[in-house]
Amino acid sequence: MNKNVILQVKGVNKSFGGVKAIHHVSFDLLKGEILGIIGPNGSGKTTLVNLITGFVKADSGLVFAEGKKLSGLPPYKIAGLGIVRTFQIPRPYHSLSAMKNLVVPLYSSRIMRTIGGKLGDRDTVALDILEEIGFERDAHVPYKHASTFPEGYLKRLELARCLALRPHVIIMDELFSGLSVSEITAMIPIVEKLQMNGMTIIMVEHRVRELFQIAHRVMVMNFGEKIAEDVPDAIIKSEIVKQAYLGVT
């Protein structure tokens, strides 16, 4: 097996009732790359993310991370292996301030195990992470309750929660959706910086234009199946992708 493969999905299937949400999808994720996953609504992108991260159990098929089997593990254990995700609809802890939101991942066994007691004050670490990701401390943003934040900050908070876990792989489920163009342009450098810091990233996206700027490879899904996987330039030219998106036969 290729040493560079960090995550391997092998023929996963999932159906909800009679609907086939995912049909025999396989792909490899290479270390250090940004893999984009696109597809029309209902093509099974989020279900795929749920399958990889253990939130939904696959009917069949396997997921491996660096040779370790992920299928069957509960979500918290998969997160413990450094494969973390953001949620499409942000899930902050409304009654806590942004900073305390990050105390939760910093309290996880993954962080305790790796750097444990040397971490110091969790609040301070949380502040550092938030500042890095664009929560202006001078304006007291990190101290505000999560329930008061607009969408852009909530998306960043999602990302910050993942970063706090010091992951290898981040799966971003529609990070750009619901954001304005300027918010997206602010977000792109953050994602690129993460990639340069050695993280492997899967981006599930609808905003194809922005995605193609930063993705190294793109996988296209339709009706629960993988229909194409290639570099962005090739995907743009691909006939099969045009068919899926535009319905042209």
Binding site: P75, Y76, A79, S95, V104, R110
Partner: peptide, 24 residues
């Protein structure tokens, strides 16, 4: 305390806590 913060987070949103490597 941090322990209590985790408990409160579970109340607010248990799925996000599960995604944070914490056995709820």
């Amino acid at each position: 305390e941090d322990f209590g913060i985790v408990l409160r987070a579970i109340k607010d949103n248990d799925q996000a806590v599960r995604a944070s490597n914490i056995n709820i």
